[in-house]
């Protein structure tokens, strides 16, 4: 079993980078999720003899603060046997005025194999990918995409729904406008056959979001009706120029997830949140902390496994390219 999971011969994974969900087709995604599920087993994940990435160097390059994403890539890399370096961008030459591409050239000269990038500007990881010779993994770029988060969310859902998320009704709620998580998730969940809805005040829903293959709602009652999964997003106050909603009080009243609003969804509906949470703004603590309905800690756990799978697959593709 273990052997089958990590064997790419049957269907080789060929992607060089992981920048956007649209880089992958469905077979790639299924392959990655299968491998992620394989790594969810802690005996496999924490095996001392793991040497998939032995001799490879992974650099975490985070231009925005992150706790869970950066640490989860670090743990994932280490558990696969890679040498992991986390760049402290705040104290690096970037602060001294170096441009992104100069930084890229500098790092490239050190010959890393995998570069995990988070940047405040949409498209920055894609620009880096053109200038370096290693695999680039987008760990969140501006308001564009966060593909590894979407993959770990899909993995969490697959585990919660016995391996199949096709046909599920999934509501993504809140600040869609500023959310890269939402943009990646809409694509990925659609690709996997789920029905996606976007729920939020009109000021926080992007123009023409109904053309993303998702149904748009402006109130929780109709938006959550019949949903299997409610995915709450963080109100990204730091990305807001001017007022999009009048107050946290009003936002919670109309769009925050509490027991009463969750009751609009299907009985037994599960709750997700990519974190970090604003408790009492988009989600109430009793919902977030209820282990019977909240998948939030499962998401963090799936994060390490999913990122191990992504690193593994990209590394395998590198080895194949080197061999030919």
């Amino acid at each position: 079993m273990t052997h089958d999971m990590t064997d790419f011969d049957a269907y080789p994974f060929t992607r060089e980078h992981c920048l956007s969900i649209s880089d992958f087709h469905r077979v790639d995604i299924e392959r990655l999720l299968d491998l992620g599920a394989h790594y969810l087993d802690l005996d496999v994940q924490k095996s001392r003899t793991r040497d998939v990435l032995r001799g490879k160097t992974l650099i975490n390059l985070f231009f925005e603060n992150s706790t869970r994403t950066e640490k989860s890539f670090e743990v994932a890399g280490k558990r696969l046997g890679a040498d992991v370096i986390s760049m402290q961008v705040a104290s690096s030459s970037v602060k001294k005025g170096e441009t992104l591409l100069d930084t890229a050239a500098t790092l490239n000269a050190m010959n890393p194999d995998l570069l995990v990038v988070r940047h405040g500007s949409s498209g920055a990881p894609a620009l880096l990918a053109q200038k370096v010779s290693c695999s680039v993994i987008n760990a969140g770029d501006g308001m564009h995409e966060h593909p590894t988060q979407a993959l770990l969310d899909a993995l969490t859902l697959r585990e919660a729904f016995d391996g199949d998320i096709g046909g599920l009704q999934i509501a993504i709620c809140g600040d869609i406008l500023h959310s890269r998580v939402a943009r990646s998730n809409v694509q990925l969940l659609n690709l996997l056959g789920a029905n996606v809805r976007l729920v939020g005040p009109p000021t926080l829903i992007p123009t023409d979001a109904d053309r993303w293959g998702a149904e748009v709602f402006h109130d929780m009652k109709s938006g959550l009706k019949g949903c299997d999964v409610v995915m709450m997003l963080r109100l990204q106050l730091e990305r807001m120029q001017g007022a999009f909603v009048p107050s946290k009080r009003e936002y919670f009243h109309f769009h925050g997830l509490d027991r009463a609003k969750l009751a609009f969804a299907k009985p037994g509906a599960l709750v997700m949140h990519p974190g970090p949470m604003n408790r009492g703004v988009e989600i109430s603590s009793d919902v977030a902390d209820d282990p019977d309905i909240s998948l939030i800690t499962n998401q963090v756990g799936a994060g390490v496994a999913m990122r191990m799978a992504i690193l593994h697959a990209l590394s395998d593709a590198q080895d194949r390219r080197a061999a030919t």
Partner: peptide
């Protein structure tokens, strides 16, 4: 105009 736009969009819901 941006403030008015957001007010109108927000109020529309």
């Amino acid at each position: 105009a941006q403030t008015m736009r957001r007010l109108m969009a927000y109020a529309s819901s």
